[in-house]
Design a protein around this nucleic acid. Structure first.
Lengths: 206, 206
DNA sequence: TTATTTAGGTACCGATCGGTACTAAATGAA
DNA sequence: TTCATTTAGTACCGATCGGTACCTAAATAA
């Protein structure tokens, strides 16, 4: 999804926009939307404010693009998990992926979608609502996947896809909070294993 | 824990400091530490900046006092839970309490200790670390309680207090995130029930 | 009364916030 | 070269940030 299609007509930009966006994503990840100032962002991106505004619009649009990059990068374990063949494997892939992503030593601890903005003042309200929708969209997608599992008789007819999805997402979000509080990868893997092993409907196949 | 002991020597203050602190707590709860500006806070408290500084010190100390009030108010279900007679009841009290506290219609959704500051810029770093410690202290207290349950043969010797405590806290924190995303009390109660009902070690007595 | 002590309000501080003119520099097209 | 087009850097904008000096108001103690 790089952006290298236009024939350069004017002065070429002297920085890699994709790399700059990636660095901005890391700053948002670590400091949240409101906590990341333009000075923090442009400093990490290695460009000036004017270059950032020319390339990305403004702070909010930069955040949206950073979230999109996060979605297709560190958070891409989500859609991959939905493609697993059974509900049990879907749930395992989600929680294992959450543990890995929130404790990646090369990235800030936690989840951008969770700690990016749970609370915000007036200026940060759009970002807050954006992430609320991001989290709810993930939960609805998982619910849909579990519904399919019921339809396919992978899960018993008595299973409740909405409740199951909310439980899995709750554990995943809790893992993100714990990671931001300093929990180690091993400790969180234990939590994920526990959440999976104790759920009868989710441990049939494997 | 009111503050009415000093004999008044000068001009008496014209506002209720306890009530003002309670309102400040609600603002921090809803907007987080960095998202709550002094104007937001003093506006809700009904006092001027100078009165706030005279009565509470500065913004960070106000936050500390608001967190202490939160701890002995909305979050007091924690210590109460530790006093339950069995590990199963302790875990149930924690999760049920978390559901109630994060979805109280008279308070902002979510948990001040979680969304108050998961991410922060440099200015908000002390508050962030304060809440990290707050969350970890709660988890350690629960671990200690579960260890006691093992010692008392309430939990089997094979039980792992640290892992059990981290699991329960993870679900509790996840509930807070879901509440901040708009989940209803009923939906979260289902999650809490699910987390409790599927954990074999936690459903012995009741 | 007078002195003392504390609270409240105005008006302001320097710093930083997100955002933007304005100009110089670098390219392709003519 | 000349021109059009785009980027980069400087310097600045008004607004807001957390915090404070200063003066007045209101109470008690003498």
């Amino acid at each position: 999804m790089t952006t290298q299609d236009k024939p350069p007509i004017g002065r070429p930009r002297s920085f890699d926009a994709d790399e700059a966006l990636r660095r901005a994503m890391l700053v948002f990840w670590e400091q949240g939307y409101e906590g990341a100032s333009l000075a923090d962002l442009t400093g990490a991106m290695g460009i000036t404010k004017t270059s950032m505004y020319a390339a990305f619009g403004n702070k909010e649009q930069l955040f949206r693009k950073a979230l999109a990059l996060y979605d297709e990068g560190p958070a891409s374990y989500g859609p991959r998990a939905w493609a697993e063949p059974t509900a049990a494997k879907v749930a395992a892939a989600i929680l294992n992926g959450a543990v890995q992503a929130t404790t990646d030593p090369d990235c800030p601890p936690g989840c951008l979608g969770v700690q990016g903005s749970l609370a915000a003042g007036e200026l940060g309200l759009p970002a807050r609502e954006l992430l609320v929708e991001w989290r709810n969209a993930a939960r609805r997608a998982l619910e849909k996947r579990f519904q399919r599992a019921v339809d396919e008789h992978d899960l018993p007819p008595s299973a409740n896809p909405a409740r199951l999805a909310r439980y899995v997402m709750t554990v995943a979000f809790g893992i993100a909070v714990e990671a931001a509080s300093g929990a180690s990868r091993d400790e969180l893997q234990e939590v994920a294993d526990a959440a999976l092993s104790t759920w009868p409907e989710l441990q049939r196949p494997q």
